[in-house]
Design a protein around this nucleic acid. Sequence first.
DNA 1: CACCAGGCAAGTA
DNA 2: TACTTGCATGGT
Length: 214
Amino acid sequence: MQHAKKLWTIYHALNDHFGDLHWWPGESQIEIIIGAILTQNTAWRNVEVAIDRLRSHRLLDQHKLLRIGDEELEALIRPSGYYRIKTQRLKNFIQFLFTYYDGRLDKLFSGDVALLRKQLLQVKGIGEETADSIILYAGDKPIFVVDAYTRRILERHFLIDKRATYGDMQAYFMDHLLRDIAVFKQYHALIVNTGKHFCTKNARCETCPLQKLK
DNA sequence: CACCAGGCAAGTA
DNA sequence: TACTTGCATGGT
């Protein structure tokens, strides 16, 4: 109850400041999935360049990506960094999609969420945050996405201790908020924006909308 | 120049 | 379980 109240207070403070962020940026399910993999430990602006290059080559399409050679894909996504390993990660996902779901995203997202999450985590290169981003933003299914900003903000506001795992933090949100897909999407988006603008690694801004809550 | 960015896997102890 | 390291580009 106490936790729920804090989380809603934070949500409303951030929501008043940033407004509706309409996440995830991306026009199709496959584009969102590709972005989720490419943005791993990488600035989003670099990912945008890579995605635009794929778009201009009409490659935001699992059927096309199934056929593409490693070298061509590496060259196209190079601006997003880790381009060799990310090429393999993208192809790992595409292989998975065709092996178990006939290459169809509607099939991928038609079953049980918990099972889907386990399956995604089997794909080499998809960890918890990437799996949850795919499920929430591409699949439009209720799950909360945790990232480095989430940990930093929760720690700085004494809502979790340093030893908390990803699952601990995810449960913290999912157990104390309404199970509302739109809220989950917006809350994570608000956290990322707060992290980018106010709560960077070694800078804490006095104008952060959360400062006045303390 | 150093440090950071919407992680993950593999190795070590 | 809990650290450590490699992966790579582009902005500040």
